[in-house]
Design a binder for these strands. Structure first.
Length: 995
RNA sequence: GCGGAUGUGGUGAAAUUGGUAGACACGCUAGACUUAGGAUCUAGUGCUUCACGGCGUGUGGGUUCGAGUCCCUCCAUCCGCACCA
């Protein structure tokens, strides 16, 4: 065999492993480069060809950067806590750690086969206690911090305590709930009166018991326990974060989710909302991911306005982005859950309101979302007072106002908001037109820049000016102020699961406390991985002696969510075995941010947001010299499967008025089906038979007719064609393998195939997600075996731009495999002897090399992995034509190829006489002087249409070229005797004659 | 509804700053050599026309000597968010 990829790849994979070729150490003499992949969850299904796509791209880039002389960190690990291993444990009793270990082994085998340059000595696993010890440590730091709005960063809780001790809350500007003190229980603070507004003096604070102090501090910690409305998924038995829910059901499994008030750990990510938006400007991510994050964080600026309730000791606070339209407020709407609803509702309307509130409480989030078109609401009987003009404003409740956003209440301005407009019209509430000359017969006027009217001091103003003036007036009068709101909610951090990081938390006297620093809380053994009978999380099953460490009355029973471990793993790679800290500062200072991060776009609102949050936190607390984790990110597209479909003849009969389908056992070649369906979707038996005859279908028509007539059973039946997925292994080039398909599923064993005129059976195809369900999964192991890892690597890149989703089609892989063989033949004779010569290459041969060096380097720099493969193919084709076997050229080419096909490059490099690995070879230097041409072939166009080409010396001036073109005999025909209006000569590009 | 992205042969795609549209592959057609493994080589292959030529980058318009590329309009597909006040 000429190019024995199988032997070569095995040989070098073994040597690389033995020589630790891809191990890296910190080296201050070299510039660093950090290339990171999103580490995988090791699922039981193993890898399909879509998974390695990003890894191959990053591996190529890492190898390229190494050739350029960078010290490249390119690690890999596993996000190994997760639900599937736990569910498997529930079903089988097998400890999730064992399942996980097995899956990791399988992943590792598959990855090793592809020839990645990962430094496996740096592997991390989030489920490894030596790793999650530091996840717990980071949690402890977050718990031990508050967010100081004055300095705009997280600070140790001790600095807050100092402030409280010396000055109470008077100098404290902290990120916290708007009315945090309302959650304090009267029984814990018996001396507080009803009018306690959250202001504490130093002596208040200092008189508190430690428990009372702790209860207050909990409202300021960045990781805090609170009763909060969470997304509870009964099916999974756990709470879920907002980003784990899609379309109102759980992302995993698609189970229903309900709102539930539970005491849970939360992360005060909302404190970072503004910075998380601002800092997006400084990182090189795709615009779409940035937009998704901006959207998710949802910043809106406006004002907070307080409306007094008439005849009641209550006020309603609203948030509005359009304070300028306040004179158009003709009613208010509270969320049904709003705390004031009960208090302000008058006796007359109590029944209505109670019914409405009750009704709303029964609905799930999903019901509410799907019900948005219905306008509903109820009047409370109460009125608010317009703060500027004292007018009465009716207070309603309505589901369109969300309790969880803003203040849970709105001032409704029907003239300026479509929902308010619809609500007003539906309930016959008056509308004040506050916009000059606006037509409000059909819809509200939402244009910010429309001048105002009926608005006293705002009349004639518009836009930001009006908004600013309105806010200024409110602030002066003392009932409102400018305010920024975010859609981003704090992240629920507790999960009621076993297979996750335990918290470094225990309870004593009802208080959550951190375990002493340095004590690792590893997962205790439990008898079952299910919740307890009374609904406690699985960890509640562990008895005191089951815990590796135990403090206080009880350990925390929740575990951390999946995103905890993945929020900082890129830091651990820098120093994976450190037992003293999460990573040594000198190593962090060397490797710094991830320079290139490659992974899927599906983590836009989860992992990527949380990792940014934790990075900013660690930066604030002085543990990191940077505040964004991933400087540049590329999101690879999904590789889709190409499913094959066959069509079966179905017979539809009428029986007792019901349609009944019967399968005939006959399958129809797709090309025939297309022809037939163009004429009609359904066929009578006789017409079908004659049509098949006409189109030269190969089948025993008599037998088919018999069969169909039997099914028809004398009635007037119609024949139609149903689709069915078939395993792609039985299909080659859309032709069904009639022998092998019979052994696939029983129904095919006896099937009859109606072949086309050529005696073939063609399949239709369709592009689906790659999934067992569609029988379209292609796995990399088979391809490595058939074509080799180098071919797989090249082909995955050759498919198209990395960012784009594209269908996998194994057919094309021959193309790149042939290219590699052709490349091999540049170095070898027909008898496969190595024939590289030391002769000096010709100018043409050097041109090919240098053209390719430039193209490959440029393309890699701009992230165009696919076109590099083309460039290498072109070079190989050209050198084959030139019969070039010169060392100088081939050696350069060998290095160019090595990031893509490291095994072959290594083998050839070795044969070229090198002792060291090709992966350490210097990237060839591009010499522009070699590409200087004496002549340029100009495309000559007339009125923009290219007609012919003419070569001119590179030194010729545009004037001379113009003259030469017009004098050329080929021009006569197109000039048609006219004098050109203008001749445009762009040196080394084009000549255009304008007539 | 809002936001983001994408529309180029039979297929995957290329064309980086406006300058020969379809590189490189797959597939297909014909031929050669052979017939055992899925091979290799040669030629052709956007559409249309006998041909000269004409038409071609989702649609319609614009700017320009020249537009896949820039501007406007509309359409389609995908993704994200969605009574967010």
């Amino acid at each position: 065999m000429e190019y024995d990829f199988s032997a070569i790849e095995k040989k070098w994979q073994k040597k690389w492993k033995e020589a630790q070729t891809y191990r890296v150490e910190e080296d201050p003499s070299k510039e660093k480069y950090y290339v990171l992949d999103m580490f995988p969850y090791p699922s039981g299904a193993g890898l399909h060809v879509g998974h390695p796509l990003g890894y191959i791209a990053s591996d190529i880039f890492a190898r390229y950067k190494t050739h350029l002389g960078f010290n490249v960190l390119h690690p890999m690990g596993y996000d190994s806590f997760g639900l599937p291993a736990e569910q498997y444990a529930i079903q089988t009793g097998q400890h999730p750690a064992i399942t996980t270990e097995n899956n990791i082994q399988r992943y590792r085998e598959q990855l090793d086969q592809i020839g990645f340059s990962f430094d496996w000595s740096r592997e991390v696993r989030t489920s490894d206690p030596a790793y999650y010890k530091w996840t717990q440590w980071i949690f402890a730091q977050i718990f031990d911090s508050w967010y100081n709005l004055e300095t705009n960063k997280a600070e140790p809780i001790s600095s807050l305590i100092e402030k409280l001790e010396s000055n109470g809350t008077y100098n404290v500007e902290a990120a916290c709930e708007d009315h945090w003190w309302k959650a304090l229980k009267a029984e814990d603070f018996p001396h507080f009166g009803e009018h306690f507004e959250g202001e504490l003096t130093a002596s208040d604070w200092n008189s508190f018991t430690p428990k009372q102090q702790e209860l207050v501090l909990m409202h300021f910690r960045l990781a805090y326990l609170a009763d909060s409305w969470v997304n509870w998924c009964p099916e999974l038995g756990t709470v879920l974060a907002n980003d784990e829910i899609k379309d109102g059901v759980s992302e995993r499994g698609g189970h229903p989710v309900e709102r539930k008030l539970m005491r849970q750990w939360s992360m005060r990510i909302s404190a970072y909302a503004d910075r998380l938006i601002q800092d997006l400007d400084g990182i090189d991510w795709s615009e779409s991911i940035k937009e998704i994050q901006r959207n998710w964080i949802g910043k809106s600026t406006g004002a907070r306005v307080i409306f007094q309730v008439q005849d009641a000791d209550a006020s309603i606070e609203v948030f509005t982005t359009r304070p300028d339209t306040i004179f158009g407020a003709t009613f208010m709407v509270l969320a049904p859950e709003h705390e004031l609803v009960e208090q302000i509702t008058t006796a007359e309307y109590k029944e209505d309101i109670d019914a409405y509130v009750h009704n709303a409480s029964l609905k799930t989030e999903r019901d509410r979302q799907s019900d948005v078109k219905n306008i509903s609401g109820a009047f409370t009987g109460a009125y608010a007072i317009h703060p500027f003009n004292g007018k009465q404003i009716p207070i309603w409740i309505g589901e369109y106002v969300l309790a969880s956003y803003g203040t849970g209440a709105v001032m409704a301005v029907p003239a300026g908001d479509q929902r308010d407009f619809d609500f007003a019209n539906h309930f016959g509430i008056p509308i004040i037109n506050v916009f000059e000359g606006a037509d409000l017969s059909e819809a509200a006027t939402t244009d910010k820049n429309h001048p105002l009217q009926n608005s006293e001091f705002l009349n004639g103003k518009s836009g930001q000016e009006a908004i600013n003036d309105a806010i200024l007036a409110m602030e002066q009068a003392g009932f409102g102020q400018g305010k920024t709101n975010f859609r981003l909610r704090d992240a629920v951090f507790s999960r009621q699961r076993y297979w996750g990081e335990p918290f470094p938390i225990y309870y004593e006297d009802g208080q959550a406390r951190l375990v002493p620093e340095g004590s690792l809380v590893s997962l205790p053994e439990v008898d079952k991985y299910l919740p307890t009978a009374d609904g406690e999380p699985p960890l509640a099953r562990a008895k005191k002696e089951d815990w590796p460490v135990f403090f206080g009355e009880q350990m925390e029973h929740n575990t951390m969510p999946g995103w905890a471990g993945s929020s900082w793993y890129f830091l651990r790679y820098m120093d994976p075995n450190n037992d003293e800290c999460f990573a040594d500062r000198s190593k962090i200072d060397y490797w710094k941010q991830v320079d290139l991060y490659i992974g899927g776009a599906e983590h836009a609102t989860g992992h990527l947001l949380y990792a940014r949050f934790w990075t900013k936190f660690l930066y604030d607390r002085g543990y990191l010299p940077f505040h964004e984790p991933f400087a540049k990110m590329i999101n690879q597209g999904m590789i889709l499967g190409r499913s094959s479909l066959v069509y079966r003849l179905q017979v539809k009969t009428q029986e007792k008025g019901l349609n009944k389908d019967a399968s005939s056992g006959f399958y129809l070649s797709n090309d025939l089906r297309e022809v037939l369906e163009k004429e009609s979707k359904e066929w009578g038996v006789a017409e079908l038979i004659s049509a098949l005859e006409k189109h030269e279908a190969q089948i025993n028509l008599e037998a088919l007719k018999d069969r169909l007539e039997k099914l028809e059973d004398g009635g007037d039946a119609r024949v139609w064609f149903s689709r069915q997925h078939v395993l792609i292994d039985h299909v080659d080039n859309d032709l069904l393998n009639l022998e092998s398909i019979r052994s696939w599923q029983p129904e095919f064993a006896t099937a009859q195939f109606i072949l086309n005129g050529k005696g073939e059976f063609t399949c239709a195809y369709e592009i689906d997600k790659m999934s067992k369900r569609w029988y379209n999964v292609v796995n990399p192991d088979d391809l490595c075996e058939h074509y080799g890892a180098d071919t797989l690597r090249l082909y995955e890149m050759f498919l198209g731009p990395l960012e784009q989703s594209k269908p996998w089609d194994t057919k094309g892989i021959n193309g790149v495999h042939n290219f590699l063989r052709k490349f091999w033949r540049l170095f070898h004779s027909q008898e496969n002897t190595f024939i590289v010569s030391d002769e000096t290459p010709s100018k043409d041969e050097l041109k090919v090399l240098h053209k390719t060096i430039k193209k490959v380097s440029d393309d890699l720099n701009r992230g165009s992995w696919n076109t590099v493969v083309s460039a290498m193919m072109i070079a190989t084709n050209e050198l084959t034509d030139l019969k070039c076997n010169k060392r100088e050229v081939l050696e350069g080419l060998c290095v160019l190829l090595s990031p893509y096909a490291p095994h072959m490059a290594e083998e050839l490099w070795n044969k070229l006489g090198h002792e060291t690995s090709v992966s350490k070879a210097a990237w060839p230097t591009f010499d522009p002087s070699i590409l200087v041409e004496d002549e340029f072939e100009y495309p000559v166009s007339f009125n923009g249409k290219m007609r012919f080409k003419l070569s001119f010396p590179a030194t010729m001036s545009p004037k001379e070229i113009e003259a030469a073109v017009l004098a050329n005999e080929q021009s006569e025909k197109y000039l048609e005797g006219k004098t050109p209006k203008k001749v445009i000569v762009v040196p080394k590009r084009i000549v255009n004659v304008v007539l």
